[in-house]
Amino acid sequence: MVQIEQDILGKNDQYAAANRSWFRAKGILALNLVSSPGSGKTSLLTRSIQDLKGRYPLAVIEGDQQTSHDADRIRATGVSALQINTGKGCHLDAHMVGHAIESLGLAEKSLLFIENVGNLVCPAAFDLGEAHKVAILSVTEGEDKPLKYPDMFHAADLMILNKIDLLPYLDFDLALCLDYARRVNPGIEILQVSARSGEGLDAWYGWLAARMAS
C-alpha cells in the first residue's frame, strides 16, 4: 500500500494557477461565463463587446462541443475570438485555456471573456484561472435553477439574470429566484439585464469597470 493523498483535479488546478498568474502579470481581467444552453450568453457578449470595445482591449475564448458559430458571431464585432471545440467533452479545462491564450496574443490590461460550454454541471469543477465565474441565467428557464444546479451558483461571484424584458409574458417568480440563488451562495452579486433591450447593462459595465480598475 502507498499513501499518496493527491487531489484528482490537482493537475487542472496547476494549469489554472499558471494561467491566473499570467493574467495577473499582464493586468488582464479574465471572466469565466457559465450557463445552460440558450441563456443568451453569446447575445449578451456581442452586445457587451459593441458597447465596450472603445473602452478596453477585448478578446473572447469560445467553448462549444462543435461548430465555430459563436466565435464567428464575436469576430463579426471586430474583436478577436478563438473557438475551442471540446468534441465529446462537456467543459473547458485550464490546459485548453492555456493553449488558447498563447495563440490569442492578448494585449496588456485587456478584458478576456471565456464563454464556457453551455452546461450548468461540469464547468463548476474546473478552475480556468479566471478572476470570477459569472453565471448567466435567463427568465425563460425555471426560477429554481440555482437549487437544481447548486454547485455552479455556489462557484459564481456574479449572477446575471438575462431576458428580463420578457418578464411580463412569463410566470417567472423573480423574488423566489433571487432567494434561491442566495441560499446556495449568500455572497453572490446579482444583476438583472436584457441583452436585447439594453436594460440593466450599465450596471454590468459598472461591475466590469470596477474590476478593470483594480
Binding site: I4, I8, G89, C122
Partner: peptide, 24 residues
Amino acid sequence: MHEMSICEGILQVLEKEAGRQGFQ
C-alpha cells in the same frame, strides 16, 4: 459526463506515481 475527465486525472496521477515510486 465529467467523471470521464476525473478518471483520466486519476490515471495521470497513477502513471506519475508509478514512475516516481517504482511500481508496475
